[in-house]
């Protein structure tokens, strides 16, 4: 009795579902795309990674067979190791170099836009072109080694692409050359977003410039760093074309990367199951990094 009278007297709130209806309608296609193509495709891939599919996807269950084979394959282990080395170094160097360049650029120098253009220019090239250019530059017969030798230092040796133990660094050089400009631009935008008054206050307090950067400016640039991290890290995990153009995975299998393993086994070896298993492992690797971070990041924001 009482409950019905209560509900009738309480003013009716408009349903949450119909708020901003037009905006919700407009985002339906994107939601569908995300669900069907991204999520659906991912689930499909994971499911088929447990089958023995060869050229065509077939639901013949093979359990964990593909994964067992994957982790017993020397080439895959080399790929993972390369990705780790390449990924960690690439993150560190592109952040450090990119930030230092941006900080230098922020000193109100002359011709700033000219420098900015020059540093950003390599980013306009695709990885394939970058890879080819650096393949020639690092070729002992045409490139840097030859130039230095012609200048008189005849014992100079610099042929990273032909040395198994250091070939991954040859690829790192090319990727830094290509990608650092973008990091610099993002950082520069972040620096420009810092209020002039903070710099003035720091100067009044007599804080040295490097300390201001390290303890005041960088913590304030957190969102920029996170954006940059996402962009750079996703580029690292899917690195493929650079390796194909520069070394095709050689010498031997010394510069193989996971994405290339996935492609080669899916299409050249006509073994979809194996390729799917490898790409599922790649997804898991990314998830292991991203999920705890996202939890911390968004979990904290809610509490504030």
């Amino acid at each position: 009795m009482t409950s019905t009278t209560l509900s009738t007297t309480r003013p009716k709130r408009p349903s949450q579902l119909f708020r901003n209806l037009s905006a919700k309608l407009a985002s339906i296609p994107m939601i569908l795309t995300a669900l069907v193509i991204f999520l659906g495709g991912t689930v499909w891939t994971v499911v088929y990674s447990f089958t023995s599919s060869r050229l065509l996807p077939r639901l013949r269950w093979a359990g964990l067979e593909q994964y067992e084979r994957l982790w017993a394959t020397p080439r895959w282990l080399v790929s993972i190791e390369n990705l780790l080395v390449y990924g960690v170094l690439s993150l560190i160097f592109s952040f450090v170099i990119g930030f230092v360049l941006a900080a230098l650029m922020d000193q109100k120098i002359r011709f700033e836009s000219a420098f900015r253009t020059i540093f950003l220019y390599p980013f306009a090239l695709s990885f394939v072109v970058t890879g080819l250019v650096w393949q020639w530059l690092l070729n002992p017969e045409f490139g840097v080694q030859n130039i230095v030798r012609e200048m008189g230092w005849t014992s100079f040796t610099f042929d990273p692409l032909y040395d198994q133990s250091i070939v991954i660094y040859g690829i790192l050089i090319a990727s830094l050359w290509q990608g650092t400009g973008l990091v610099m631009c993002l950082m520069l935008a972040g620096l420009r977003g810092i209020d002039e008054d903070i710099w003035k206050a720091a100067r009044v307090d007599g804080i040295p410039m490097w300390k201001t950067y390290l303890f005041i400016v960088i913590p304030m640039m957190r969102p920029v760093f996170i954006t940059t991290l996402v962009i750079v890290a996703s580029g690292i995990v899917r690195v493929y074309d650079l390796v194909v153009a520069q070394t095709s995975g050689g010498p031997g299998t010394a510069s193989e990367v996971p994405a290339k393993y996935v492609y080669d086994y899916m299409f050249q070896a006509q073994n979809l199951g194996q390729g799917f298993a490898a790409s599922t492992v790649m997804l898991l690797t990314v998830a292991i990094v991203v999920v705890p971070w996202a939890y911390l990041e968004f979990g904290r924001r809610k509490r504030v």
Binding site: R54, R75, N271
Partner: peptide
Amino acid sequence: ASADTQKQKED
């Protein structure tokens, strides 16, 4: 041999 086996040999 299948393409899969051939690829493994190549590696």
